[in-house]
Computed example of a mutant assay.
Amino acid sequence: MLDYDKEADAYDASRGGEARAAAAAEAVLGLVPDGPGHLLDVACGTGIVTRRLAADRPALRVTGADLTPAMVRMAGARLPGAVVRADSRRLPFRTDTFHAVTSIWLLHLLDDAEDVRAIVAECARVLRPGGVYVTTVDKAAAHDVGSDVDAVLATRPRRPAQDAAPTVTAHALRHGLRPAGGTAFPGIGQGRSPRTTITDLRRGWFTRLPPGEPRTEDFAARLARLPDQDRPRPDPVFALRAYRKPTPG
């Protein structure tokens, strides 16, 4: 996994910036019921999406939580007094606190199925009856857009997708949540070019291809032979799923 303390300063610029954040926030809020309430953004990162959730839905009181100190500092600057440092597997909030809980671009980072189960369980626990949990699913698959870059990378080793939609749904059902719809949004500015993909390979972005390994350099060499080295291929389209906590009776 990448070191997100080191990634923090360049994180937004390397991942679509405000345009991607705006698309994400609009899609998330489309799954969150209107009206006043309290929303928790789990693993809020730099707070670039969290701030938009707060700005675009003024009736919602928004809290961000993240484990990485550098990310918490950046998010705290965007939402003063509304960001806490917390492990998403052990959230420091009371049961039935929030009207909505979100985890955007989190579950795909995890190798351990038990960690994913624990996070979904915690999000369900702190969610009030009638509230919704919204999360991204199938993130790695979204980056395979059928381009020539994807064709080169097709044979790379992959880790199991812990954020696969059926897996996340199974965890949600196990913890009392019920499917409540879904949507998708474009990962604006995240289309891969051959040159940026080579850079990502060599800095450990692809977790099963460590920097410096012969296999990594073989993929890099094949990418270097593609045309239009600096032309981004199509942007990914990210999937969101919503789950509702039933009200008693």
Rank of each mutant, 00 (worst) to 15 (best):
P69S: 04
A82K: 13
G76W: 04
W105R: 11
A75H: 09
R89G: 02
P69K: 06
L67K: 03
M74G: 02
A65T: 00
R57S: 15
R85I: 00
L60T: 10
T95H: 14
T97N: 10
T95N: 13
V83T: 08
R85V: 00
V72P: 07
V62N: 08
T63D: 04
T102R: 08
D87A: 04
G76F: 01
A86N: 11
T102I: 11
R51Y: 01
R61F: 09
G64M: 09
P58L: 14
I104P: 05
A100L: 06
A75G: 13
S88P: 11
P80G: 06
L67C: 02
V49N: 06
L60Q: 11
L53Y: 04
V49I: 15
V49E: 01
V49D: 01
S88E: 14
F98E: 09
R89E: 13
G64V: 09
R61H: 14
F98T: 14
D87V: 05
R78E: 01
L91W: 07
V72D: 01
A82C: 13
D56P: 00
L91Y: 03
F93G: 04
V84W: 04
A54F: 00
V62Y: 01
P80M: 09
L53V: 06
L67G: 08
L67E: 02
R90G: 02
A65I: 01
M71R: 09
T97Y: 10
R73Y: 06
